[in-house]
Design a protein around this nucleic acid. Sequence first.
DNA 1: TCTACGTGTGGAACGTTGTTCGTGTCAAGG
DNA 2: CCTTGACACGAACAACGTTCCACACGTAGA
Lengths: 239, 239
Amino acid sequence: MSADPKQRRAARHAQPPARSAPQPSRKAPITVARITDAALEVVATEGYDALTMRSVAGALGTGPASLYAHVVNKADLDELLIGRLCSELVLPEPDPAAWREQIRGVCTQIRDQYLKYPGISRAALAMAPTDLEIMRVSEGMLAILLAGDVAPQAATWGIDALMLYVAAYCLETSIAHQRAARDDVAWVVDRDELLHRLTALPAASFPCTIRHATELTAGEGHDRFDFTLALMVDGLAHR
Amino acid sequence: MSADPKQRRAARHAQPPARSAPQPSRKAPITVARITDAALEVVATEGYDALTMRSVAGALGTGPASLYAHVVNKADLDELLIGRLCSELVLPEPDPAAWREQIRGVCTQIRDQYLKYPGISRAALAMAPTDLEIMRVSEGMLAILLAGDVAPQAATWGIDALMLYVAAYCLETSIAHQRAARDDVAWVVDRDELLHRLTALPAASFPCTIRHATELTAGEGHDRFDFTLALMVDGLAHR
DNA sequence: TCTACGTGTGGAACGTTGTTCGTGTCAAGG
DNA sequence: CCTTGACACGAACAACGTTCCACACGTAGA
């Protein structure tokens, strides 16, 4: 194996890494897979803010310097994590009769993966969509939309918009969740409190907000998400 | 004025700060406004990553500790910046005949403000929409949509989706811009290079991506943005 | 078999970040 | 005049990403 980790990253991007001998050497050496697993564990239990070089190194029982033999940066680690997440998505065989449900299904999978690892969508937003696993997901979604007879240009731009929205939505709800978990109990969840705040606004400046405070605070679970997804998907159907 | 900066933030949120004596004390004291100005200057010239307590303090000719008498956190500073940005948006008087153009106009203003301060949309995404200036914008957009006869529930959720998308879009393009500015010249802008990469993918795994590589790399300027905005706004009109 | 080497490991350290402590300074009130 | 309170800021602390360098160890060559 090469000594320069940048060359290793390049080697990772060359899709089939040939078939190197798995080399099950004894005594648990540090590998990229183990680093990725430990990092995802950290994010799942403590959130993305707690994802530090030191925290993953600690989970592996070593120091932070040991990671840099396998990973270029923290940005590289982020790329690995998103790649792993994307690799676990199941892309359906395109069915022209059910293309809307299929895309919604893929987006819901992405949403659930993001929310399973709170805050990781921030890494997804700050990353160049160069990764092969991400392109695999894009390819799958593109195939579904094309099977649904969506125009190619609308399909590509629509996929871009969908992925951006899903990531932003998950980032927002992740932040709201962990804020609610930190500041005592149920801070955002308490709809009555939020509704009271809205109606307490100055009536002269916020007439619409006050009149429709119930709609502003409405939505259980992922109603908002489902609405926006349907909005965009149905829009793609009509052009 | 109170000594505890948290009380000051609370005082800022109480909308009309009464009419305290302006107290034009001599010798340029540090104020929240001056901090906000200096911070926006830093972001505009060096990007959001360079926005440090030390950098704004340096721009003000002092040390970082001086800021904490006027600002609770860096998160509080972010909130101030977004509030300032929102306060500079002009909200049109709702015109039922032109509501689509009006929302697109507001979203375009938000976009241009975000892009004027590269990377600041990250702060917008990571913030609770509690701020009064943000609510002023929401109120304005809600008034426009309601004037356009959009159903209240669709209007509120649609505004949420629009603002999330605009922020995510600006974050992505800001990152792409500064990556292009750092890594030599034109790294992302070079469409031929990108197209070449796409067509170099394994044809067996990426048939759709390769076939529609031109559509994937298409779009000058904000074509993608305009497409998605039209997609969502037109969708809101039909429900 | 011994030896030199390359490779992965990890303790220590550097520079930078957000944030706090404590001291100094200056204007207003008694 | 002195006291008092608020403000400014140098210094420091903990934690972060990252790098340097010395050490251990399995393997190839003499």
